[in-house]
């Protein structure tokens, strides 16, 4: 589950997929996660950091993580 290499992200949370030409906006936490993914962090590393930083139950995060992955997949942003 790795982000495609050439995905461009900006500080404002814009995402641009040069392979498809699609643009996306994201909420701040999504932008943060994307940055971590780009930095090569593993999903367990990222989740641990989020649990540490945000007021969220592990179970909730786990559910949202699955949804997050499906969003990225729908958006064609993940390596096949």
């Amino acid at each position: 589950m790795k982000l495609k290499k050439n995905i461009a992200t900006s500080e404002n949370g814009f995402i641009f997929n040069p392979a498809t030409g699609d643009s996306f906006s994201s909420n701040p936490i999504a932008a943060e996660i994307l940055q971590m993914m780009k930095d090569g962090k593993s999903s367990s590393q990222i989740k641990a950091e989020l649990l540490d930083k945000y007021h969220v139950e592990e179970l909730q995060l786990e559910r949202d993580w699955d949804d997050w992955m499906s969003q990225l997949k729908d958006a064609n942003l993940l390596e096949q």
């Binding site: 900006s10 949370g13 814009f14 641009f16 643009s23 906006s25």
Partner: peptide, 10 residues
Amino acid sequence: DVKEFQHLSA
């Protein structure tokens, strides 16, 4: 440029 499009959209 895509930046203009993104800026307007956001």
